Amino acid sequence: MNTLSSHVLDTTLGKPAQGIELTLTLPDGSALTGETDSDGRFKNWAIDSANGFPAGVYTLRFHCKPYLIEVHGSSFYPHIDITFELNENGGHYHVPLLISPFGFSSYRGS
């Protein structure tokens, strides 16, 4: 069974990024949405399956411009897309994003 979570950290402030809208595009082209909580986390994807997420290629879009404009006054990135692949019975996948007004990085977390 595959599960998915994300975490957004503002590296300029050294704090979680609250209120960033997320769009997860599934392998079949459908999309789910969410928003980071006060700790910059989101894990409550509404998926109608007892088996979690099926294997396939996903894209997680972080709509970071409103947050970066509000907190830092500028944003080079209107959004950041991270495309990744889930394997059959891959377990838990965690996609963290580290952002600043002019840079970002990501990795497979735990």
Rank of each mutant, 00 (worst) to 15 (best):
G73F: 03
Y77S: 02
L32N: 04
P54V: 08
S49W: 09
L97W: 08
A46P: 14
P16A: 06
D10S: 07
G90W: 06
H63L: 04
P96V: 07
N89G: 11
D81L: 02
A31G: 07
T11C: 07
E35F: 00
I99G: 02
Y58G: 02
Y67M: 07
W45N: 08
C64G: 03
E70H: 03
G14W: 12
L4W: 04
D81T: 01
L4R: 06
H72W: 05
S30L: 02
V95W: 05
D10Y: 11
L98G: 14
F62V: 02
T11P: 01
H94N: 13
G73V: 03
Y93C: 10
L60G: 04
S75E: 06
G52Y: 08
A46Y: 08
I47N: 13
N87I: 06
S6H: 04
F76Y: 10
S38C: 04
H94K: 12
H92V: 06
D28T: 06
K15M: 12
I69E: 15
L32M: 13
T33A: 10
A17Y: 12
L97S: 08
L4T: 03
E85A: 12
I82N: 10
G19N: 11
V57H: 02
N44Y: 12
H94I: 02
T33Y: 10
F42L: 05
S105T: 13
R41E: 14
G56T: 06
N2F: 03
I69F: 00
D81H: 01
P66F: 06
A17M: 09
G91K: 07
E21P: 00
T23C: 04
D28K: 00
L9N: 14
K15R: 14
T36H: 09
